[in-house]
Amino acid sequence: MEISRLSDRPISPTGAKMFKVAFDLDVDDSGWPPVSVERLWGEKTDVRFEIRVVNTPFFVRGVSFGDLVRVRPDHERRELVYDGYTSASGHSTIRIIFMRADVRQSVEERLRASGCSWETAGGFPNLMAVDIPSDVGYGELRRWLLARVDAGDIEIQESAISVAHKEG
């Protein structure tokens, strides 16, 4: 991500201005998710108040990398806030929670070989947010991940599964 010298605002690989979008979250009785708002980077589109999400959410459900969302300015909070879903990118989002640290390398190798990317967060060292591009066959990868779940190595959460990945 490049930083614009004029505004210190990141510029996406496509050259579009980037904005943080606040997604308000409902925290359940058990305290999950551990945050009440997640802010995702998005790039401006040609449609007013529409943003293309350009990172993978850790806690927001139903949104994936590349999805288009509507935003509204919240003047009191001084930020853009998620206002609705516009269209899907075809990507899917899953989260992996590592129950055993010694399996992380093999999981990362399998994800990389499958064509996936992921993000990690310093405050949550056992959590990985995984982007599954539309051209990745999720069925085989899912079976492999579920075998790791059965072995007690990881837990997974399917946060946003695209139509193509549900069918494949």
Rank of each mutant, 00 (worst) to 15 (best):
D150G: 15
M18H: 02
E2R: 15
G15V: 15
I94N: 03
R110F: 09
F19G: 05
S64K: 00
R48E: 11
V149E: 01
G15I: 12
S12L: 07
D150P: 08
G123D: 06
E155G: 05
F65S: 01
V63E: 04
V69E: 10
I51W: 04
E167Q: 14
S134A: 12
G90Q: 08
W144M: 12
D102T: 15
D46G: 05
R104H: 14
R78K: 11
G90E: 04
L6F: 15
D153T: 08
A151K: 01
G66D: 03
T86C: 12
E76R: 09
S36D: 13
D29W: 08
S87K: 13
I161D: 12
N55S: 08
D26S: 11
E108Y: 12
I161L: 10
K20S: 13
D83F: 06
D8H: 14
T93M: 10
S106N: 15
H75Y: 11
F23V: 03
M18L: 15
G137W: 02
R100Y: 13
V27M: 11
V60N: 06
L80C: 11
E2G: 07
S117R: 04
D46S: 09
D150V: 01
H91F: 02
V69G: 04
F19C: 11
R77W: 14
M18R: 05
R143K: 13
G31A: 04
G90A: 07
C116A: 09
